[in-house]
């Protein structure tokens, strides 16, 4: 079923699902340069709707407004600095289950139909073109999916503060976000504690640490070393269902779903070990590199 459009504007009323093939076919060089937006009528005709399409959480206006406000708010800043502000708020506006967020068609529709202006603003170099994978691509690359997933995987229950730490560092978004080890929440929180400390970590340190954590995970079960608490899936369902009229604060952090915090003892158990990995990696990094 095509996404319904309102009579007065060209904006669709609801978020839809746009298949990968159709999305790719409409990522012309004019779209990628930001000179055109994908043809609305065609995109609407080829999009489908989520099964509960009438639910308030699929309304397009709030997420479009948030994305346009982002480009306004950070007009005079480098677009990368907007990531840490936008990620928690995008997560609050888009009330999704992980199963829903795994569907690339959702992110295609948001990028090509709801707010292509945001994708161009964030990812188009002056005089250049956006990489097609920022409109339609893997979860850790696509412009909106990467921020939503960063918020989902780095939040500590309802607390989005670690998400801000994560998204302030492009190396965390580019490397750590797609590492398998961080899917165990205590690993993610321990990593972010080191990233967020005074002085933080350089990009190179983040990448070295992420690689070391992943490599150690092949012989260590972090789930045993540092157990997580059981997720309260009912709390997530309730949070997703309560989207209607939810207000997104711009100057304070919103609150995420209260599906249980990461046990601090587990994070504490991992932090010294990760410091050790970092020390080892740095020693290796300082070793003389033979000339090619």
């Amino acid at each position: 079923m095509p996404t319904r459009t309102t009579a007065t504007t060209d904006q669709p009323a609801h978020i839809g699902l746009l298949p990968d093939g159709v999305a790719r076919a409409h990522l012309t060089s004019a779209v990628l340069r930001g000179d055109e937006v994908p043809p609305a009528r065609t995109v609407d005709r080829l999009s489908t709707s989520p099964s509960d399409r009438a639910a308030p959480r699929w309304e397009a206006a709030p997420v479009r407004q948030l994305l346009l406000d982002t480009t306004g708010r950070f007009r005079d800043h480098r677009p990368t600095t907007a990531d840490r502000w936008l990620a928690p708020r995008l997560h609050t506006v888009l009330r999704l289950t992980r199963a829903e967020a795994a569907d690339p068609a959702l992110w295609n529709h948001l990028a090509l139909r709801i707010a292509p202006e945001y994708v161009v603003w964030r990812w188009c170099p002056a005089g250049g073109a956006v990489a097609a994978s920022r409109f339609s691509g893997p979860f850790h690359v696509q412009a909106l999916a990467r921020l939503w997933w960063a918020a989902e995987l780095f939040r500590d229950g309802p607390d989005y503060a670690p998400v801000v730490t994560a998204c302030a560092n492009q190396d965390v978004l580019n490397t750590v976000l797609r590492s398998q080890a961080i899917l165990h929440r205590p690993v993610a929180q321990a990593l972010l504690r080191l990233v967020g400390e005074d002085g933080g970590l350089t990009g190179r340190e983040v990448n070295a640490l992420s690689a070391a954590v992943g490599a150690a995970g092949s012989t260590l079960l972090y789930e045993v070393l540092a157990p997580d608490a059981e997720t309260d899936t009912e709390a997530v369902r309730a949070w997703i269902g309560s989207a209607h009229g939810s207000y997104v604060p711009y100057d304070t952090l919103p609150e995420g779903p209260d599906d249980v915090r990461v046990p601090q003892a587990s994070v504490d158990a991992l932090v010294p070990r990760f410091r050790g990995f970092l020390a080892d990696a740095e020693v290796r990094g300082r070793a003389p590199v033979p000339a090619p």
């Binding site: 199963a99 795994a102 997933w149 899917l183 165990h184 079960l221 789930e223 045993v224 997720t231």
Partner: peptide, 15 residues
């Protein structure tokens, strides 16, 4: 002994 469920597409791991 720990059983682990893991799905890459939904980034979900349960132990």
């Amino acid at each position: 002994c720990t059983a682990v469920l893991r799905e890459r597409a939904t980034n979900s791991v349960t132990a």
